[in-house]
């Protein structure tokens, strides 16, 4: 095996995520409200990911929030909140070689929310719920790509399928969690975020 795919896929993840984060942090300037709001949302998502209810079959009330953040605040904000979620929670639960790929996948979840907004500006909670459900599986498929490239030989479609199959149970659980949470909390969450989105814009100052 002359080419070490595991090496390249991991490095690619690192590099991609570094470039994206650098690019994100470089462009334009941010007001204190924007920055602190996104940071707090990221902390919130990270906490939701770290402290999951045992009474809830380990379902995480997080991915749908990242999706809705993207939907309300735009793709750029969604990407950041998504990417920061695994990074921050892994500071507490342990960073691993999986962190960059997780960041990329979560970032994509957020960015896709922004995309949805562009495609369907009037989308209701139903569409978001469907998107979240799909992301449950899509996220698993993306992460499997990394697992597969690092730990499985030979790299054929068949072995990838088997890797994916091995994680199918977890993926289903994630998708189910996303579905339930988005259905139950989506409307309320969207309302709250939209309220703060309005607040983020500095109000017009008028004289008396």
């Amino acid at each position: 095996m002359a080419v070490s795919w595991g090496l390249w896929s991991t490095l690619l993840g690192f590099l991609a995520v570094c470039l994206l984060m650098v690019g994100w942090g470089r462009r334009g300037s941010m007001t204190s409200k924007q920055l602190s709001l996104l940071a707090v949302l990221a902390a919130f998502c990270a906490a939701g990911r770290a402290v999951t209810g045992v009474g809830l079959l380990f379902l995480q009330p997080t991915m749908f929030l990242v999706e809705i953040t993207g939907f309300v605040f735009g793709a750029r904000a969604g990407f950041f909140v998504g990417a920061a979620t695994p990074l921050v929670s892994n500071f507490f639960m342990g960073q691993g070689p999986w962190t960059p790929w997780q960041m990329l996948s979560w970032g994509l979840v957020g960015a896709s929310g922004g995309l949805l907004k562009v495609l369907f500006p009037r989308a209701g909670n139903g569409l978001l719920t469907v998107a979240c459900f799909c992301w449950g599986y899509l996220y698993g498929a993306l992460m499997d790509l990394w697992h597969w490239s690092v730990f499985v030989r030979p790299l054929t479609l068949k072995t990838y399928f088997l890797t994916w199959l091995a994680g199918f149970g977890f993926d289903s659980l994630r998708a189910l969690g996303n579905l339930l949470f988005c259905a139950a909390l989506g409307q309320q969450t969207k309302k709250i975020l939209e309220y703060f989105h309005r607040k983020m814009v500095v109000e017009y100052v008028e004289g008396l």
Partner: peptide, 11 residues
């Protein structure tokens, strides 16, 4: 005030 909060100001 008013930079961060906005609002109406006189004086």
């Amino acid at each position: 005030i008013p930079d961060f909060y906005g609002g109406k100001m006189g004086g």
